[in-house]
Structures are given as C-alpha cells and as structure tokens.
Amino acid sequence: MTLFRLDASIRTEGSASREIADVVEAEWLAAHPGDAIERRHIGVDVLPSDAWPNAVAGSYVPADARTPAQRDAVALAAGLVDELLAADAILLAVPLYNFGVSQHIKTWIDLVVTDPRASAGSTPLLAGKPVVLCTVRGGAYGAGTPREGWDHSTAYLRRILGDVWGADLTVIEREFTLVGVNPALDAFEDLAAEMHQGALAAAREAGKVLALGDAA
C-alpha cells in the first residue's frame, strides 16, 4: 500500500500539525512496515505562485499552443493529481494561518482542480478514499468562545476534501497551540494540555483505522 502525506506548515521543527500527523503516520507504518510513503511539503517546498493562472490559461488552449510556463503548470497540476490517485490512503497536515486557509494549501487545491480528472464525469476525485486531515489552531474558536466563527479554514477543507472530492474523511483538530508561547493564553494551560492529549489519542486511533484502508 502507498500513503501520500502532504504538510502545509511553514515549519519543520516544532510544527504542531506535523506532530499530530507523525502519530497517524507511525500507526500506519506499524501496520504496513516497509510500504511506500510519498511526501510533499508545500509549506517549505512551495508551489510556484504563478502556476495556477498558467494552468488555468493552459487548459483553454491546445497542448501544442501552450507557452512554456503554461506547459510547466499543466504538468505540475497533473503530477499533483497523480500523487492523489496513486495513493491508497492520504494524510494531510494543515495549520490555520491568520484565521484562514493557508496560501500553500489553497494553491495546491486550486492547481489540482485545474486537472481534467478532478472534474471529469460524475465520480469525485477521491471517491471513497480514506483521508485523514490533521489541522491545528493557535487559539480557540469553538462555540461560546470570543472568536467563535473566526476559523475560516476547517469548514472549507471539509467541503473540498469530503463534499467536492468525495474522500472518506476523518478530521483531527487541536486548538490552543499557542498556549505556552503567547503569555496572554497562560490561564488556559490545563485546557490546552487536555486538548493536546486528546488530539494525540485521536491521531493514534485514526492512524489505526487509516491503515485498514477504511477511515471512519
């Protein structure tokens, strides 16, 4: 089996989303030792900022009439879709940045959508494929909090991955990752620790389920 893992954090060391995804990956590897893991870290090895408009423009002209930039962008988009289709399971680690969708994950999604296979026919791109999304937030945005409704990322990712692409989606969420970093949040240390442990436990369970090829 093959696992495709995508990270969107701008950090490699100390990344909260990466920590959660590492737990999922470890459980998957425990069930599939030696099997392939394909990786893409778009927060560090960023996708070109002009790739999306070039891919869009290139999709409206014959292949032999495309500019070099359009050809490269169309090929990049096709490669991104190839990674998704080739995988038996998918793991995404995506933080909330500035209350919204990270530019890195948005560029990735926009490029994927330009490929004809992402919209062809009635079968969604990831129909029934097990996908685990690990997403983290520095503050707290749940019901009753002062910033309820300020998370403009998670619902969007659910919509794209689950509703548009048809993935069998499991979402693991962790909040208050900035407790211990931002002194204004020191009063929430116990709650943050509880949320952290809950996310790790959820990641272990999701990894076990993902390894079976049937995310819950």
Rank of each mutant, 00 (worst) to 15 (best):
F4C: 01
R5Q: 04
L6C: 11
D7N: 04
A8F: 05
S9K: 02
T12G: 07
T12A: 06
G14H: 15
G14E: 13
S15T: 07
S15W: 03
S15Y: 08
S15L: 03
A16F: 00
A16L: 01
R18K: 15
R18V: 05
E19K: 06
I20E: 00
A21C: 01
D22A: 12
V24I: 07
E27Y: 00
W28D: 03
L29I: 07
D35I: 03
I37P: 01
R40D: 06
R40L: 11
H41Q: 10
H41Y: 14
V44C: 12
V44W: 10
S49C: 10
A51F: 06
A55K: 03
A55E: 02
G58P: 03
P62Q: 04
D64Q: 12
A65I: 08
R66F: 09
P68D: 10
A69V: 02
A69N: 08
R71I: 02
A73H: 14
V74H: 11
L76F: 13
A77W: 01
A77Y: 07
A78I: 08
V81F: 03
D82V: 11
L85H: 11
A86S: 09
A87V: 08
A87I: 11
I90K: 10
V94P: 01
Y97C: 05
Y97M: 04
Y97P: 07
N98F: 03
V101N: 02
S102N: 06
Q103P: 05
H104Y: 04
I105Q: 14
T107N: 15
W108I: 03
I109T: 14
I109C: 01
D110V: 03
V113M: 14
T114G: 00
P116W: 04
P116C: 05
R117I: 04
A118G: 07
A118S: 13
S119K: 11
S119P: 02
G128I: 04
K129N: 04
K129P: 02
P130Y: 09
V131S: 11
V132K: 07
V132L: 12
V132W: 13
V132R: 13
L133Q: 15
A140I: 09
Y141A: 01
G142L: 15
A143L: 14
A143I: 06
R147H: 11
D151N: 09
T154W: 06
Y156Q: 10
Y156A: 06
Y156T: 09
R158N: 04
R158W: 06
R159N: 09
R159A: 03
L161G: 00
G162T: 09
V164P: 00
W165K: 12
G166A: 14
G166H: 13
A167N: 10
D168C: 12
D168A: 06
T170K: 13
T170V: 13
T170H: 10
V171G: 10
V171I: 02
I172L: 01
R174A: 00
R174S: 02
R174E: 05
G180R: 11
G180T: 12
V181S: 03
N182A: 15
L185G: 01
D186M: 08
F188L: 15
A193T: 09
E194C: 03
H196D: 12
H196Y: 10
A199K: 01
A201Y: 07
R204N: 09
K208F: 04
G213R: 09
D214R: 15
A216W: 09
